[in-house]
């Protein structure tokens, strides 16, 4: 949307304006496909790792086209560390709930295959779905968030190394 401008100002170091206009909607669609893959992980092929890699693909696409400093999907240091530790803590806490209620770490409380948990507690952890797969979708979501943050952190780090090497 170049309003009132005859030609967009474009220097040779940037990406072309076609790429700059088309990248963000494509990244939106890639991120939404990744979220769909994560949430269908217990029914269809796919899962947390694959969906997280798709979301990280959208973020990496934005980083490559726009550059690290003014990418629209910018993940800050604080966001990355907070999300990584919160999600790991959620995974461990879901396992500790199984350890406290039944005595085995990461027992599937919501699915309750062996009937080790009363039905009222199992109804809390049950995933609101047709399959009632228990804590498996929640673990999928946790691993998806971890992979999304980790993979994009590696690419952001490498882009900033390139900038540091140019400064020296």
């Amino acid at each position: 949307m170049a309003e009132g401008k005859k030609s967009p100002n474009w220097n040779k170091d940037d990406s072309s304006p076609i790429l700059k206009i088309m990248t963000l909607p494509i990244a939106f669609i890639m991120i939404a496909l990744g979220i769909m893959t994560i949430l269908g992980g217990h029914i269809t092929p796919g899962g947390g790792f694959q969906g997280g890699a798709m979301i990280a693909g959208g973020i990496i696409f934005c980083v490559i086209v726009y550059g690290v400093d003014d990418t629209p999907l910018k993940l800050s240091h604080r966001f990355i560390s907070t999300l990584e530790s919160l999600v790991a803590l959620a995974y461990v806490l879901l396992g500790l709930a199984g350890l406290a209620l039944t005595g085995s770490f990461l027992y599937n409380i919501g699915g309750n295959l062996y009937g080790a948990v009363p039905q009222a507690i199992a109804a809390i952890f049950s995933y609101p779905d047709v399959t009632h797969a228990g804590i498996v979708p929640y673990l999928n979501i946790a691993v998806g968030l971890k992979v999304l943050v980790g993979l994009s952190a590696i690419v952001i780090a490498f882009s900033k190394f390139k900038k540091l090497a140019e400064e020296e």
Binding site: A2, N9, W10, I21, P72
Partner: peptide
């Protein structure tokens, strides 16, 4: 996380 400050972007 989306933060737009570009001229030629969507």
């Amino acid at each position: 996380r989306i933060h737009l400050n570009l001229e030629n972007s969507f």
